[in-house]
Design a protein around this nucleic acid. Structure first.
Length: 953
RNA sequence: GCCCGGGUGGUGGAAUAGGUAGACACGCAGGACUUAAAAUCCUGUGGGCAGUAAUGUCCGUGCGGGUUCAAUUCCCGCUCCGGGUACCA
């Protein structure tokens, strides 16, 4: 009986589906385990062989945990909203829903062929109204919440209103856009509209005039993580800075918790590091500087180096800073305006590619807070409006950017400083003649003489002490305050697109946004005639005249105090891609609940994701947003865990391995790889599916394209060898390998094991079909272990110790490997084990049955088949993982009590059972070894394959 | 620039509380079975030198140092490759 993988795999996939083998339910009292993959965006290209890598790993882990007795939640779904479907719709007029549904169907077919143990009854699609209802619901909750730093959690806005009414902003510690202060009386004097506008400054979802990344080509704004190197992540179009009124999420309120939460979760160091950098906490001080001699107006700057205060020789404002207008003197006004205009026109990309130092003098002077000396105030685009206060104190000696600026405008600065050098070094022994000294180390010098004029001297302190001392001083004399700044900005939540979640928002007659009542959710995405923005530049939803309103009108009128005659205007923007993916892991816990995102009961059972597998590309997007979202829901009491993903593994990228043929110039003759240097050739990409072990199938090549039909070949050793290179896997490189083809040729079990065998899970590596034979051979060998002369020949004889040793060593190895996600070495271990059993001609149930259980997470189909051949009913998934016994696994290392005054280096490896005397006699009598053992007692003899190879003292 | 990874045979990769370097697999070479092919199985396979051979011996984990009886593993310096990030004060 041969290993007929096609038949076996079809049979068991159908069996699993029919019996709903992987369907799970909450089971209080039984330990749970939640294994999650990052759900895919179903693109039109289908899956290539790189996509399932993470899914295979998680599936192995899920099946493994199932065998160990855990109640395993292992769901899958689709991140179905996205730009490609919409752009395709714009080009073809096809509704994105139609193409998305088709793509999902195709994905599902491809996934099913690989034999994943997903519980499909819990499938989630972000474009499904039953799902995005809860995205809209969460948005409403965000809108109705603010963040209290005192309680360190989100609270209902009603509480904030109460506080305003009793004591205004007095004593409030809350997250807000811009800081403001008003009394209770002032609050009460505000009109309703004014009150609403004020509250926007505190809501966690708020409408704000934001400097946004506007991408004209895509016709929408983008979040910071969607912009890479000044161009859009999708499509690579230029992005410019622009102020627009947009919905935003106050992610920044959670900066500290997002940062400290990292300590408690098991993620890779590099991913945590990426998030830490993105959050970008920096501790420093805000210092106020008086403007002009009258000292009435003050500018605040932020610095992490208050110790360098005596090196400040000028100030710089961002071009967008609100102080620019006020500080530009009449004489400078024209020049300043010109500069600010020019800076505005520059896109993010221009700013990055062109690092020439530019700037303009405002005409005003600030006063040094300690020495009282005048500091010229400049304007330059190297200062960012969005970070700190949009203004800096420049310390050219100890900041490279300030240094560059000071050198560029040295002449002007010198004149403004009365001839003094703007570069004032403050650290002993530093050389600032050609560059600044940025390091935070050294001993301070050059403070003004003690007692004059401010009484602060930092001389002799090291930098850290000086920072602390200066901070103290600033607080004591009220020159500013100690302050922590974060790089993390609020997330812009509006997209001017069609294919996304509609906001549950309408605008009342005064133009203020109002939330729809939760009862009318979901607000469904309407039909439109075209997917482009309207002629007046409104988002595509502007094309839907009465959209949705008709269906919600009655419900709204019944539940809310809304004037039915008011002309309602629903929000025309839609939500961004990360909206739908921010809480999908919670929905899997209770996917059909119509009353709640997730019930308390289900949430308390499944709690959070125990293992999350996905790519690093989401480090600063999805993985920040969903942590934020989860923490918010945690504050609300909707979920019981503060962090959504306890452990996270990043699978590496699978790159493509392209093949080349070499065409002799001006001919239709192709020359094999190692002969190509003798000719003048041009390399040509050739479809990797026509190549096997780098040898070209010339017939397929001739049939590939008409122009190659009469191609000639110059062979070597009777073969045409192709060259190769590692490139991105893409259609244009002809290096896309489709998992369906592999499954058809070798079977899903081979694909699964080979993807794991390819190398460490977290490492990026090229796909190379060469070598898959080895894994396929292993499975055939495993199959043959059960048969003799074509019939099943598994006996019930007891196993020998030798056979048990093979089994138990393997159990132990697989267990530790799976725990460490070292699946590649597991596959090797299986190969070794099976080779040994083949050699021992072991066909015993006592060995093969547990071994099949052990192998089943990796190669589930063949194992199910063999399992049933052994006479078991039902799925192997219901069986129990075998335990290993120490006595069979400890054959390589053991304690060997010897005492001798010997030397170490052996002339030969020694046999087991040798006496101390014999060991002594066998070792080389050299100086090194003698030194090693001198005066020490050997503790352990390490024996490998029956021979002593080492003595540990 | 800064922060992470990582350099091991022809190839993918094993092995790090320091202890037989190259497991396992691919490829290659030779052999068996076949009219032949496919499939399967067996043997060899880091390099140099010596030997008919078993074998012996020296060199070998990017480069240069160091610690140690012992270094792919630890420390210092350099170099190359990959990833992340960047006027964040």
């Amino acid at each position: 009986m041969d290993y007929n993988f096609a038949e076996i795999e079809k049979k068991w996939q159908a069996w699993w589906a029919e019996n709903q083998t992987f369907r799970v339910q909450t089971a209080p009292g039984r330990p749970k385990f939640y294994v999650l993959d990052m759900f895919p965006y179903p693109s039109g290209a289908g899956l290539h062989v790189g996509h399932p890598l993470g899914y295979i790993a998680s599936d192995i882990y899920a099946r493994f945990q199932r065998l160990r007795g855990f109640n395993v939640l292992h769901p899958m779904g689709y991140d179905a909203y996205g730009l490609p479907a919409e752009q395709y719709a714009i080009q073809t007029g096809q509704h994105p829903e139609v193409t998305t549904a088709a793509n999902i169907k195709r994905y599902r077919q491809q996934l099913d062929k690989i034999g994943f143990s997903f519980d499909w009854s819990r499938e989630v699609k972000t474009c499904d109204p039953a799902y995005y209802r809860w995205t809209q619901w969460a948005f409403i909750r965000l809108f109705n919440s603010f963040y209290s730093y005192e309680k360190n959690k989100a609270l209902p806005v009603t509480g904030l209103v109460q506080a305003f009414e009793t004591s205004g902003t007095d004593g409030l510690q809350v997250a807000c856009g811009k800081e403001e202060s008003f009394s209770a009386d002032e609050w009460r004097a505000k009109s309703e509209k004014e009150k609403q506008e004020t509250l926007m400054n505190y809501r966690l979802a708020y409408l704000g005039d934001m400097m946004v990344n506007w991408c004209a080509a895509l016709g929408t704004v983008l979040a910071n993580d969607e912009v890479v190197n000044g161009v859009s992540l999708r499509g690579g179009y230029p992005v410019e800075q622009k102020v627009m009124r947009q919905w935003c999420l106050r992610v920044s309120a959670y900066a500290e918790r997002l940062l400290s939460g990292l300590d408690a979760i098991d993620w890779s160091a590099s991913l945590k590091e990426t998030q830490r950098n993105w959050i970008g906490k920096s501790e420093g001080a805000e210092i106020r500087l008086a403007i002009g001699s009258e000292g009435k107006r003050e500018i605040t700057v932020f610095t992490t180096r208050p110790d360098t205060i005596f090196g400040v020789t000028f100030m710089v404002l961002a071009p967008e800073s609100e102080w620019v207008d006020a500080l530009a003197t009449d004489a400078q006004k024209a020049e300043v305006t010109c500069y600010v205009q020019a800076a505005k026109k520059r896109t993010e990309r221009d700013r990055m590619s062109d690092r020439t130092v530019t700037g303009v003098f405002s005409g005003s002077y600030a006063l040094h807070p300690l020495t009282g000396e005048p500091l010229p105030v400049w304007i330059s685009d190297y200062v960012l409006a969005g970070y700190g206060t949009g203004a800096i104190m420049a310390v050219p000696a100890h900041d490279s950017r300030d240094y560059a600026f000071a050198k560029r405008f040295e002449k002007e600065l010198r004149a403004q400083l009365g001839g003094k050098d703007p570069v004032v070094p403050l650290i002993e022994g530093c050389d600032v003649s050609s560059e600044s000294f940025d390091a935070k180390e050294g001993i301070m010098m050059n403070s003004p003489q003690a007692g004059y004029p401010c009484g602060l001297s930092l001389n002799g302190l090291d930098v850290q002490e000086a920072i602390a001392r200066t901070k103290e001083y600033i607080e004591k004399y009220d020159l500013g305050r100690i302050r922590v700044n974060y790089r993390l900005r609020d997330a812009i939540f509006s997209r001017q697109r069609y294919w996304g979640e509609p906001f549950p928002v309408y605008y009342d007659s005064s133009g203020m946004p109002q939330m729809l009542p939760e009862e009318v959710l979901p607000l469904k995405l309407p039909e439109v005639d075209k997917y482009l923005p309207t002629d007046t530049g409104e988002p595509p939803l502007g094309r839907a005249d009465h959209w949705a309103w008709d269906s919600v009108r009655n419900k709204v009128a019944a539940t809310a105090d809304i004037d039915n005659k008011t002309v309602f205007a629903l929000e025309r923007n839609t939500m961004p891609g990360f909206a739908g993916s921010s809480a999908y892991y919670l929905r899997y816990m209770d996917p059909h609940n119509e009353k709640a995102l997730v019930s308390r009961e289900n949430n308390e059972y499944w709690r959070s994701v125990d293992l999350y597998i996905g790519g690093t590309e989401h480090a600063t997007g999805h993985l920040i947003y969903s942590r934020f979202w989860n923490k918010f829901l945690f504050d609300l009491g909707v979920v019981c865990e503060d962090e959504p993903f306890k452990k996270l593994i990043n699978q590496g990228m699978i790159q493509g391995r392209s093949n080349f043929v070499y065409r002799i110039r001006e001919t239709n003759t192709f020359v094999s790889l190692n002969l190509k240097d003798r000719y003048d050739v041009t390399p040509l990409h050739v479809d990797v599916n026509m190549v096997s072990n780098d040898a070209l199938d010339v017939d397929k090549f001739r049939a590939w394209r008409p122009e190659f039909a009469d191609a000639e070949f110059i062979l070597e050793d009777g073969k045409y060898l192709c060259g190769w290179a590692v490139e991105k896997m893409s259609k244009s490189m002809y290096n896309v390998v489709n998992p369906d083809d592999i499954v058809e040729k070798y079977g899903a079990d081979t694909l699964r094991m080979y993807e794991m065998f390819l190398g460490p899970l977290e490492q990026s590596k090229p796909w190379d079909t060469n070598g898959i034979d080895g894994v396929h051979r292993f499975l055939k060998k495993y199959w043959r272990l059960f048969f003799e002369n074509g019939t099943l020949a598994v006996s019930d004889e007891p196993a020998t110790p030798q056979e048990l040793k093979v089994l138990h060593r393997l159990i132990k190895k697989i267990q530790t490997d799976v725990e460490n996600f070292s699946f590649n070495t597991s596959v090797s271990a299986f190969m070794i084990g099976v080779n040994e059993l083949t050699e021992l001609k072991c066909r015993k149930r006592a060995i093969l049955q547990p071994l099949t259980t052990l192998l089943s997470p990796f190669a589930p189909h063949i194992c199910e088949e063999l399992w049933s051949l052994l006479g078991h009913a039902g799925s192997i998934a219901d069986s129990v993982f075998p335990e290993y016994e120490e006595k069979y696994t400890l054959e390589n290392r053991f304690d060997y009590p010897v005492s001798f005054n010997g030397k170490l280096r052996f002339k030969k490896a020694l046999p087991l059972g040798i006496s101390a005397k014999e060991i002594e006699a066998a070792v080389l009598n050299d100086e090194q070894s003698t030194k090693y053992l001198e005066g020490k007692t050997p503790k352990k003899v390490i024996v490998v394959e029956g021979k002593i190879v080492n003595i540990v003292v």
